Amino acid sequence: MTQERASVATFKGNPITLVGPELKVGDTAPDFRLNKNLLEEVTLQDFAGKIKLISVVPSLDTGVCDAQTRRFNQEAADLGDDVVILTVSADLPFAQARWCGAAGVDRVVTLSDYKDNAFGKTYGVLIKEFALDQRAVFVVDQDNKIRYVEVLKEMSEHPDYEKPVAAVKELLS
């Protein structure tokens, strides 16, 4: 049975329910299967040996999600080849590609959780009421241990941008 965590987050002040476990620093990152495009799926193992900054957004077509993805795209330039930044949303893969083209975002890998919201359920960020993923940031090291977690308490707020980048830089040193 899938765990539900009621009223742990809000959308514009209204309680929402997150589905899945509450992941913590030190946990092993769960494997995932996400769509890179309509035909190609990727898993956590496709990024083996890399530090992974996973930026989770409800939809790229909203203001905060747009800003969050652009910000991490800028940060990617300074982090080097040992780091991959993944942006996960429930947007369809072709909508993600269209958005990236229009926004000039070319350093993050957009991945879609549209098929069955499996990432959201596994990472504990699926919003039951909307079938979207709650805004969150995870930093996962080369051995797939979670080193940083922020699941936003309010869906419409920005994450802390400095702390996950600092966590990545610490892993690089």
Rank of each mutant, 00 (worst) to 15 (best):
A103S: 15
G80C: 11
L171Q: 11
P15D: 14
V140Y: 02
L111K: 09
L60C: 07
V108G: 02
K36Y: 13
P30S: 05
Q96F: 04
R98M: 11
L132M: 13
N14F: 09
P21K: 10
L126D: 03
L79H: 03
L53H: 04
A48G: 08
K50P: 07
V105W: 01
A90S: 15
K163G: 04
D143I: 01
Q96I: 02
T110Q: 09
L132I: 12
V88R: 02
E40I: 11
H158Y: 12
D91C: 02
A9K: 02
R98D: 15
L86Y: 06
R98E: 15
Q142S: 14
F94K: 07
R33I: 11
A29Q: 03
T43M: 08
A77W: 11
I51P: 04
L44P: 04
Q3W: 11
V42H: 06
V109E: 15
R147W: 00
Y161H: 10
L38K: 14
V140Q: 07
L44I: 09
T110C: 14
G104V: 08
D27C: 06
D78W: 10
D27Y: 00
D81G: 14
C65I: 03
Q96T: 05
F130W: 12
Y114W: 13
V64D: 05
I146V: 15
K52L: 09
K121M: 08
N37Q: 10
D61M: 07
E129D: 01
P58H: 05
Q45H: 14
V108R: 03
D106W: 07
D82A: 13
G120T: 07
E170W: 00
D91T: 02
V149M: 03
I85L: 06
